[in-house]
Design a protein around this nucleic acid. Structure first.
Length: 754
RNA sequence: UGCCCUGUAGCUCAAUUGGCAGAGCGCCUGGCUCUGGACCAGGAGGUUCCAGGUUCGAAUCCUGGCGGGGCAACCA
């Protein structure tokens, strides 16, 4: 099965390679949450990747609960995780697994390692084990229990299982290497004694496996092919492989790591989220400000938007923090097609239309959708001489570019009439309390022909009827953090106004007809829906899902922000070791060339032998830049040629018999045959295309085929010359003389464009 | 100061494996519009972390340096 999607990232590259090579007939991946908290946006990224991969390649994705720590895990989290995943649209079919179901197998496999002398029971205390592990810069040392015979280890391990030790009395450790540069390999712990009740296994076990021991083995048990985890586990990979090798598992899973998703102004640490919940800073795990899937769901974001966002940010190994703007864009873009437009006034300012009778009432048929959305439907919008508008849609002292109501100014009431503000009533503090406007007769929306409609209003504002609108509470959510990235304490970075409540908002009455989980666009305000937690309350409580893109505030706040110039690090030269210094002096090579040779085993001798009959500078160059990189993992000694032949080649180049291109071609051939450089050179030169006429023909063809680019070149895009040369080289299957091609292309281009 | 991962536009990512440095978001300008939305058109924004080297040609290969992240839980 080949991928249908256009997405290509390093994971998909690996999978394509494995599928093509037949390493696996199909892929099996897994999403492995630990049931100790709620899923958040970061997990959405990981699950979208894994479930997406399975769907794309026709493989399967397992849901596996990594439940090896009885002290933090709970059934409520299992249920919540499953609910969230289903909501996102993922289906794992019958592939719902639990690491805790593998405890017996894991135990047997541990015994296997013990019998092979690869694991031992260590009675050392936690502190002793810690201190003997060494540090990242200093080696560890052996435990006094490290060399216990397998039989004794087996006996004690069984005793551990049978509950004959108290918590912390002993552990099972893999016997690997206490001086390994990777800390994870310094005899890692496999099992600890913990007399705790597991939410699924009850009191069946009093020893529990650690992550490293449980995870890879669970992958193996399930036949996982690609075990995709986040970057912080990359140092664990060596251990992952070690366990699988020790157990001789084949075919075996491989671990690949990608960068977890971070988002500015957002907390994604499970511990910090738990803090917010426990300290009642938020209304539980599903508070609409929370980055949890439960929170995003209650906020009103549709799952498609989350999936599209996760796919659009890509999968890499680069640590990155996302700008929430892209997420918000995905949310809006998704809602735009699904949310009918209605009117709600969050912060009402009463307006009396003075030239309408006091008992005036009419019903305006207004479309739910704007002209650019191909959907039908209208609702009736009550209108009278008393209406409410948004307080900030009126300004006595308007800033430049203000497109709303001002004293004496006119605006269009959306779907209704044009009005002119004639009088402003204020209270004793100077606060605007009431507006009096006159309605321009005949300006009703849609009646373009009347003279009144010809007037150009300053803008269009939304409104509701004062008498026949309904009270609602509107809640506006903002980032949980006031800083993009949490530097110090969580509490210091919290945004004090992450929730703004408008408790006297008024909404058009059409909503009583609608399903309570209908999502709307409140015109000019944003996308909203009823908070599902308070679906029964009166007045109804609406959550703002996301604001509208707002260009009215942009110019003021952002345009002046100039990106600070990054400080470019200066380069420096490391001090050479005495050995290196001596070698450079003896060889007479530059540092770059010399050190490249210095590092490869056997390369120094090779260089010295080859330099006997060819200039050492040339030999060095060709070795460092061409020969050594071409070697790959092969040692120098396995080459089908020796220093003598190499030296011959360099001489051919040096005295001008072979061009650099020809020399490189010959070297390529020498890697696979044992013919002499002279023979090969003859062959290469034979096959090289240097007939100017043939080349000119080829160049003409290329320039003709890419005539649009020739024009671009003529217009100043000179970088295209390399492109033309490349095309000619490709067409000649690498047989053309590039230097010559370059010259001819330049000539030709100059001729055409002059 | 060890091992591993990693540096391309403000952000997130591409670049057919050595041949045009691009896209989306954000920003700006204009158009359209009865939403300061959506849509359409255009624009600005680059020392591809730096310094050398190889090459006709380097984001890509080589050497050195600098920066960011991770690893020393009886957590995962």
């Amino acid at each position: 099965m080949t991928p249908s999607s256009a997405i290509n990232d390093f994971i998909r590259t690996i999978i394509n390679r494995d599928l093509e090579a037949g390493t696996h007939p199909r892929i099996v991946v897994r999403f492995p949450p630990e049931p100790n908290g709620f899923l958040h946006i970061g997990h959405a990224k990981s699950s979208t990747l894994n479930f997406g991969l399975a769907a794309e390649y026709g493989g399967q994705c397992h849901l596996r609960f990594d439940d090896t720590n009885p002290e933090t895990e709970d059934l409520q989290y299992v249920d919540a995780i499953k609910r969230d995943l289903r909501w996102l649209g993922f289906d794992w079919g019958e592939h719902e697994y639990y690491a805790s179901d593998y405890f017996e197998t894991l135990y047997e496999w541990a015994c296997r390692l013990i019998r092979k002398g690869l694991a031992y029971v260590d009675d050392s205390s936690e502190n002793v084990i810690r201190s003997m592990r060494g540090t990242v810069t200093s080696p560890g040392s052996h435990s006094i229990y490290r060399d216990r015979p397998p039989e004794e280890n087996l006996e004690r391990f069984e005793a551990m299982r049978l509950g004959q030790f108290h918590d912390g009395a002993c552990v099972l450790r893999a016997k690997i290497d206490m001086v390994h540069p990777n800390m994870k390999m310094r005899d890692p712990l496999m099992y600890r004694v913990r007399h705790a009740t597991h939410y699924r296994r009850g009191d069946q076990w009093c020893i529990y496996p650690f992550y490293d021991w449980a995870h890879g083995q669970s992958d193996a048990i399930e036949g996982v092919t690609h075990s995709i985890c986040t970057l912080e586990f990359s140092t664990n990979r060596v251990l992952y492989d070690w366990y699988l090798d020790a157990l001789d598992i084949n075919p075996r899973p491989r671990q690949y790591e990608f960068a977890r998703m971070n988002m500015e102004y957002t907390v994604t640490s499970k511990r910090k989220l738990l803090n917010l919940v426990n300290e009642h800073v938020v209304d539980g795990w599903s508070d609409p400000r929370m980055p949890t899937l439960a929170g995003l769901r209650r906020r009103g974001i549709r799952p498609e938007a989350i999936r599209i966002f996760c796919e659009s940010v890509g999968t890499t190994k680069v640590d990155s923090t996302h700008d929430p703007a892209l997420f918000e864009y995905c949310i809006r873009d998704n809602l735009n097609q699904h949310a009918p437009r209605i009117h709600c006034v969050q912060d009402p300012l009463p307006v009396t239309l003075t030239n309408l009778p006091e008992d005036h009432e009419e019903d305006i048929e207004a479309p739910y959708w704007p002209h650019d959305i191909a959907k039908e439907g209208t609702r009736s919008l009550p209108f009278s001489n008393e209406i409410l508008i948004e307080r900030n849609d009126f300004s006595e002292d308007p800033p430049k570019g203000f497109r709303r109501l001002t004293p004496g100014g006119i605006v269009r009431l959306r779907h209704a009439y044009i009005v002119r503000c004639t009088h402003v009533e204020k209270n004793e503090h100077g606060k605007v309390m009431h507006l009096y406007c006159e309605l321009l007769k005949g300006s009703r929306s849609g009646s373009d022909s009347s003279p009144a409609s010809q007037q150009k209003p300053q803008g269009t504002i939304h409104w509701v009827d004062a008498r026949r609108s309904l009270p609602v509470i509107a809640r506006e959510y903002h980032h949980l953090l006031s800083v993009p990235v949490l530097e110090d304490e969580l509490w210091a970075g919290l945004n004090p106004s992450s929730l703004i409540e408008y408790s006297h908002a008024r909404i058009e009455p059409s909503i009583v007809e609608d399903s309570p989980n209908q999502r709307y666009q409140f015109v000019r305000l944003g996308y909203y829906w009823r908070d599902p937690k308070f679906i029964e309350t009166s007045p109804p409580i609406f959550n703002r899902i996301v604001s509208l893109r707002d260009s009215s505030t942009r110019t003021k706040s952002k345009s002046t922000a100039v990106a600070p110039k990054k400080d470019k690090p200066r380069s420096a030269q490391r001090a050479l070791t005495p050995d290196e210094k001596q070698w450079l002096q003896r060889s007479g090579l530059s540092a770059a060339t010399g050190l490249a040779i210095y590092q490869i085993p056997g390369a120094q001798a090779f260089f010295e032998d080859a330099s006997e009959s060819a200039p050492s500078a040339s030999v060095g160059n060709w070795m460092a830049n061409q020969l050594l990189p071409a070697l790959g993992d092969r040692p120098l000694s396995e080459l089908p040629f020796g220093p003598n032949e190499f030296s011959q080649l360099v001489q051919l180049f040096d005295c001008g018999v072979a061009s650099s291109h020809e020399t490189r071609e010959v070297l390529k051939l020498m890697l696979t045959t044992d013919e002499s450089p002279t023979e090969l050179l003859a062959r290469v030169q034979d096959s090289i295309l240097s007939d100017p006429e043939a080349l000119r023909k080829m160049i003409a063809d290329v320039l003709l085929e890419y005539s649009d680019r020739v024009q671009a070149y003529a217009a100043g895009k000179v970088g295209l010359k390399g492109f033309f040369v490349g095309q000619v080289m490709k067409r000649s299957h690498g047989k053309a003389n590039p230097k010559q091609v370059q010259e001819l292309v330049s000539e030709e281009l100059a001729r055409i464009t002059s």
